[in-house]
Design a protein around this nucleic acid. Sequence first.
DNA 1: TTGATTGCAAACAATTTGCAATACT
DNA 2: AGTATTGCAAATTGTTTGCAATCAA
Lengths: 135, 135
Amino acid sequence: MSQRGAYQTKQQEAIERLFSARPQDCLTAEDAYRALCESGMEIGKTTVYRSITKLCQNGRLRRYVPHDSGAAATFQYNPCQESHMHIRCIHCGALAHLHCEEVEAFSRHLTQHHGFVLDEGQTILYGCCENCQSR
Amino acid sequence: MSQRGAYQTKQQEAIERLFSARPQDCLTAEDAYRALCESGMEIGKTTVYRSITKLCQNGRLRRYVPHDSGAAATFQYNPCQESHMHIRCIHCGALAHLHCEEVEAFSRHLTQHHGFVLDEGQTILYGCCENCQSR
DNA sequence: TTGATTGCAAACAATTTGCAATACT
DNA sequence: AGTATTGCAAATTGTTTGCAATCAA
């Protein structure tokens, strides 16, 4: 298998730069591809997919599974290496970050009483956000 | 649009029976299709998909999003109407149910301090299970 | 009878892969 | 030079849809 990352290419740099420029955004591979094309970059969609895969393995991007079937996965820059949980609204799709002591306490409970080491960065809590509740 | 559920058909009954017979299993649509075929049932895959969709809307089945890209969604019978969180091991795929007061407490915290109403049935916590930790 | 349901084939969408051309070091 | 990377086209996979035939009420 190839040793992706051995060479520095303008495509891989551009993809990482795109995500790092908007650390609060979740983009699909398609989003990233379009953004790069619109900025004048010459790039193929395949390369976007392959680079994103590599960045996820590096830990520089986070991958989020879609709630709906057939929907595309989204990726987000992981600026701080600190990983944190996200909460996603089932209705509007809004994504929010969750940093708080209660998460840590809950995580400790899982480890101690259920033998389960939580991976906060891989976990998304689903529910209904404040805005959507008022409808 | 059609009013699925208006008529009782042997296909729909068989699908529900299949899932209810193994409430602890998560099956893909393909799994269900094969199991029914092997049991001598005459059924099309399309019907399996459509019936599963309906059962999810009824609340009789739960749908779980796959962690890996390209993987199929899994469905599980929801015997008790009580919905609960699941924890899934990233390594071995094991799925466990989570009923405890700590989940409720955490859920209350989310509502009160983050304005977020958690849907436990839709949420899966990802991490590493006890068995896989010892490797 | 009337509308819901079935199931085949075809459409779809996200993602992956084969492979020859190209770029990096 | 030698290997990694690119990118097109084609393949894969899970899921949905069009539509004519069939079934339940």
